[in-house]
């Protein structure tokens, strides 16, 4: 899922203070799971902002709504009838949702309410860690299901490097060396011979280096 973190409320106040009618829009997908932009967070933020502006004697209408997703036309259409009632939207979706919303409703400013961080997993409640950098050419089949692109600081494809000590990365003693994890995993799978294969130079054209990317599936287009 896309992992996002809450923006400091001071930053949000600074973004929206010039307006008088705000819609706080949550998203029921990834940001709900990582507890940064779901219905609950919308309620909390709306209540806190209402109190802040009342306390500062500033008239401010703050309404709340949460969509199933903010990265799909059909769900964003749900607010078409009411969007004109507001000066701005504070979106608690990831960067994708914020941008899609801004593209769809040209006349309404959209502000981000969260910081979008990475593609990751919930290791435990309150701890999310990065697992994928969406490089566009998955190599997990040859690395035992552990990604050196996202989990190795150097993104090296034939590791480990000299900075790996006792299974930890030189960046931090709390950070596992991705290549140590790969070797341990290949060993457990009885595929250590695969480690001997030198991985060729990766085609990075499908990564961000090739500019904004697209996936076109004509087979499902109508």
């Amino acid at each position: 899922m896309i992992v996002a973190d809450k923006k400091p409320i001071e930053e949000i106040i600074d973004e929206i203070k010039r307006h008088t009618k705000i819609l706080i829009l949550g998203c029921n997908e990834c940001v709900t799971v990582c507890e940064s932009g779901g219905k609950k967070e919308v309620e909390i933020l709306a209540s806190a902002l209402r109190m802040y502006f009342t306390n500062n004697q500033q008239e401010m209408l703050i309404d709340e709504h949460t969509l199933e997703r903010q990265c799909d036309h059909e769900y964003l259409e749900e607010i078409r009838d009411r969007i004109d009632q507001y000066d701005a939207v504070l979106s608690l979706a990831c960067g994708v949702g914020v941008q899609f919303m801004a593209e769809k409703y040209h006349a309404t400013p959209v502000y981000p309410g969260v910081n979008t961080c990475f593609l990751g997993a919930t290791e435990q409640r309150g701890l999310w860690t990065e697992r994928c950098q969406a490089c566009g050419k998955c190599i997990l089949a040859s690395t035992g299901g552990i990604c050196p692109v996202s989990r190795c600081a150097k993104r090296i494809l034939n590791g480990p490097c000299g900075g790996s000590t006792n299974g930890k990365c030189e960046l931090s003693k709390d950070l596992d060396c991705a290549w140590q994890l790969i070797i341990d995993r290949l060993k457990a799978l009885g595929r250590l011979d695969d480690y001997e294969t030198v991985y060729p130079i990766k085609d990075w054209s499908t990564d961000r280096a090739g500019g904004p990317r697209k996936v076109i599936r004509e087979d499902v287009q109508v």
Binding site: P8, I9, I44, A48, L49, M51, Y52, N55, N56
Partner: peptide
């Protein structure tokens, strides 16, 4: 923490 930030 939140209440401190909003002046309550």
């Amino acid at each position: 923490t939140l209440l401190d930030k909003i002046g309550v």
